[in-house]
């Protein structure tokens, strides 16, 4: 039984596992809902006596993995949202160019696209296509984050200090990258969208 799968980036090859970590030993409740009815059953995962892992170690592992999976999910969700937005902005800019007026809207659009691209290029390597192809194109932030996540996800789950330290460092970097993304998502794209609406041109979709 696993925690949720981290979403991928469509069309992008990242050499990593996206699977959530395995549920640690403990009691679980399975609640089934269908047609307005709800029913549940209790289940248990018992610790493997040959593993010599303490309850505390399982907890530490569960906590750090859950946090990394949540953060990786945040990352790819933002990447995918902005990719979608870029496509709409690109379409709008092309349309505007074809029409030949609204030069400032075109310039704003192109500036916004470059800002998104600049952020995206820090997050994702979009050029590698296959297992050995990843050697041709340097990995970017989320690939490195997933690598850390996978390296922390040991079958004998003892969390190393190196994982803790690197996670702290990368989470710090993520704060900055996330701020940029959130500014794009919450401010810059909606502002440009508003301008487009004002000019009577369709909307940008980020769902």
């Amino acid at each position: 039984m696993q925690h949720p799968i981290v979403p991928g980036v469509p069309g992008v090859y990242i050499e990593a596992s996206f699977n959530g970590h395995r549920a640690v030993p403990g009691d679980y409740t399975f609640t089934l809902k269908y047609n307005g009815q709800t029913t549940s059953a209790e289940g248990n995962i018992s610790p493997n006596t040959n593993f010599n892992i303490s309850a505390q170690e399982y907890q530490q592992y569960d906590a750090i993995m859950s946090d990394m999976e949540a953060k990786a999910t945040e990352m790819h969700t933002r990447v995918n949202m902005l990719t979608k937005a870029s496509k709409d902005i690109q379409a709008a800019v092309s349309q505007l160019k074809k029409e030949g007026n609204n030069a400032s809207l075109v310039a704003d659009g192109e500036a916004l696209l470059s800002a998104i691209k600049a952020w995206d290029e820090q997050m994702i390597q979009r050029r590698s296509q296959a297992y050995d192809d990843v050697e041709n194109f340097e990995n970017k932030f989320t690939a490195e984050y997933l690598f850390l996540m996978n390296q922390t996800n040991s079958r004998l789950p003892k969390v190393t200090q190196a994982s803790v330290d690197l996670k702290a460092e990368m989470d710090q970097r993520w704060i900055g990258l996330k701020k940029t993304a959130d500014d794009l998502i919450n401010n810059q794209v909606p502002a440009y969208n508003k301008k487009l609406w004002d000019a009577g041109i369709g909307a940008i979709n980020m769902d």
Partner: peptide, 10 residues
Amino acid sequence: YVPHNGGGAP
């Protein structure tokens, strides 16, 4: 869900 030739989420 977009299937991919490896390197993505299952």
